[in-house]
């Protein structure tokens, strides 16, 4: 297949198997900086999704005319323009939130996630595939932001999206909403995802091994002996 994964595969890929934060470690700066509470995290995710999808569409539309040595220039120009638009919209319609996010909205320009999607996918694929890829990646990024913000807001303030979920008696873990909390939560969640991946890989390996063993069991005892000794080694 010359085109690589199809649109729907790319869409699903972005959400979990190639999650931009947990798998590719891209765009760490907003992941750490704006996740002290759910609301700024969601706003940040929406702004990033807007920029990512718009930039992917534009780059995919002009991909036939792109000169290789000018492509990074075009990517940067496109991303910076859409980030400016997103920033102005936030300042006009969600003024309080734009004050909370502060410089992290313009910092979307240097979010490696967007430029890497332009380079890897949008500049080579049709608009349909590029949009599917961008939406999938945005959802994956949102998922990551939301998961971290959930842990930090619930433990740090006893609320979720501003609603109280833990009893008033809960002693707020101040550290969670402070910078160190961001590092600790992300580190532990990354380790959790990694552990889950390893556990699944091990189980899959065991399943393959048992299937092959049972197949070999039918063909003869000698092969089984050999298999067992190789497992011991």
């Amino acid at each position: 297949m010359p085109d690589g994964p199809t649109a729907s595969e790319r869409f699903l890929n972005g959400i979990l198997p190639e999650n931009p934060v947990y798998r590719q470690l891209l765009g760490m700066c907003p992941v750490l900086a704006v996740t002290a509470a759910m609301l700024p995290a969601l706003t940040m995710a929406a702004a990033t999704a807007f920029v990512l999808i718009s930039a992917n569409v534009i780059i995919s539309l002009i991909r036939g005319q792109l000169r290789p040595h000018l492509r990074i220039l075009v990517f940067t120009l496109t991303i910076a323009t859409f980030v400016t638009i997103a920033d102005r919209f936030l300042a006009a319609y969600l003024y309080e939130m734009s004050k909370v996010l502060g410089p992290y909205v313009p910092l979307i320009i240097v979010n490696c996630l967007i430029i890497s999607r332009c380079e890897i996918c949008a500049s080579k694929q049709t608009v349909r595939v590029a949009v599917a890829d961008a939406v999938g990646m945005s959802l994956g990024f949102t998922l990551a932001l939301v998961s971290i913000a959930t842990v930090r807001e619930v433990l740090g303030s006893g609320t979720w999206l501003g609603l109280r979920v833990l009893p008033e008696a809960w002693p707020n873990w101040g550290i969670m909403v402070l910078p160190p909390g961001a590092f600790l939560v992300l580190g532990l969640l990354l380790a959790g995802v990694e552990w889950w991946g390893q556990w699944r890989a091990e189980r899959a390996a065991l399943a393959v091994a048992s299937v092959s063993r049972s197949l070999q069991g039918q063909s003869g005892g000698a092969a089984r002996e050999e298999e067992a000794s190789s497992w011991k080694a």
């Binding site: 002009i62 000169r67 000018l70 220039l73 075009v74 120009l77 496109t78 323009t81 400016t84």
Partner: peptide, 19 residues
């Protein structure tokens, strides 16, 4: 070489001015 960049710069400039 550069017509695309110039065209895009013009279009983006217009969009930003509008915003």
């Amino acid at each position: 070489q550069a017509w695309l960049v110039l065209l895009l710069a013009g279009a983006y400039g217009g969009a930003l001015a509008g915003v």
